[in-house]
Design a protein around this nucleic acid. Structure first.
Lengths: 234, 234
DNA sequence: TGCATATTATTTGTCGACAAAAATTATGCA
DNA sequence: TGCATAATTTTTGTCGACAAATAATATGCA
């Protein structure tokens, strides 16, 4: 099965290889196309992407740095597991980042930020209307990520985006069982959040974000039963 | 100065190369041995560590993932700059993480955690007594990192350790000018923090951590003048 | 001399190959 | 047959080399 068939230029732009592999693997992991525990084979990926193992390995190192894959020293690499036992730490962090980023957005956003946020909200509403579960997950994350960007704190957006990624995996699990559910309320809450951000009301933003975040956390917790939440008043 | 002296086996354990390079470069960056803007030359590092460019590059990819170095696509790599213009985002994140990690430590710590924390505090006190500026910076970070570990939230400890790293660079700048200063108060405040953690008083832990964090922030801000702070009540 | 273009040099990204570790299978002995 | 040891296979970590991309330098022309 020699593959030097008719292609004249097997050329892809230099340096683009890692990004292609990284982006695709990342999406496949977050969408559970590669479920937790899936083995990652360098040689196999090299064949699949028609490149040597070097750029593949660089992409894997990056993914490992973000905790999306786990690498055993001299042995196998696999998609990292979802830590159900410590799920509460995820919820604690998610709620706090929802609050902080929304609050900072109310304080520091500029006019153009609101346009982006409203565009994301429109996409989310469209996904909800279309009953597109995967689309809802992705656009919801994009919506809140846009809010975080308006807050202009790279440390918070960094952690938050990571949490949203992990949430994408968890929600993917969730929506596999429930399919489509409780969406319209989220759309309405998003509108309220946009309003208080536009009004630069940091306290209200904090309050609404808290409610919004705990709402979604509770929905997920119904599935992965477990008690207690971060007792932090702000 | 050829150094293939008497050693028969120039062999270093397989897979250990990246860690050596990563750890050393990381320390040199955080201690400002490699100041922001320093060029990173792969070939030069390969010669220095007597290995090929492959493990060097992997170490660099990791460092880039943590934001410690910046990589221009097809061109040079250099130690990332300290973003003085957005220093307030650093302070906001640092204060919040001080609070959250200390609060969680009060809630979730175990007996053995306190032993570790007290050991770190002893090391910090020793560094203060010895007027060892570099030691103070490192042991102070280790002390708070140990508290964060006791809080058992990997998301928070991840961001916090990153902030402590960045703080190590900034403090290194700070202590270069002021040398030794205001240390005993920090030692005392540490003791108070340990006490409220041991008493499992989350509210007090939050309060003391806030004061402690803002204390250090204000000291640094005196140098890098700039107003405003995260207006978040908790 | 001043500037645009061409040549050279430097550095990065990618490749194929080899060796070390671990896993897997085979072999030998009781 | 059962188990310890040895051979084989598989997969990872490392290496040296080459080519593309950029920077630095040289060349030619007005």
């Amino acid at each position: 099965m020699t593959d030097n068939d008719t292609n004249s230029t097997p050329e892809r732009k230099r340096g683009s290889g890692v990004k292609v592999v990284y982006d695709l693997l990342r999406d496949e992991i977050l969408d559970l196309v590669l479920p937790p525990g899936s083995p990652i084979d360098e040689v196999q990926l090299a064949e699949r992407f028609k490149m040597s193992r070097t750029p593949i390995r660089e992409a894997l190192v990056r993914l490992a740095g973000e905790g999306l894959i786990d690498t055993l020293p001299n042995r196998s690499t696999m998609v990292s597991n979802i830590d159900f036992f410590n799920m509460h730490t995820f919820f604690d962090a998610l709620v706090l980042m929802y609050r902080v980023t929304t609050r900072l957005a109310a304080q520091y956003h500029r006019a153009e930020d609101l346009q982006v946020i409203r565009a994301r909200q429109a996409e989310f509403a469209a996904a909800v209307a279309a009953q597109d579960a995967l689309g809802m997950i992705a656009t919801n994350a994009a919506f809140h990520s846009a809010i975080a960007e308006a807050g202009r704190n790279a440390y918070f957006t960094g952690l938050f985006n990571r949490l949203l990624d992990e949430g994408r995996r968890i929600l993917r699990l969730y929506y596999q069982s429930y399919e489509d559910r409780l969406p319209q309320r989220f759309v309405d809450e998003h509108e309220d959040i946009i309003a208080v951000i536009a009004a630069r009301d940091a306290e209200a933003a904090d309050r609404l974000a808290t409610i919004h975040a705990e709402q979604i956390v509770q929905q997920i917790q119904k599935l992965f039963a477990r008690g207690g939440k971060l007792d932090i008043a702000l």
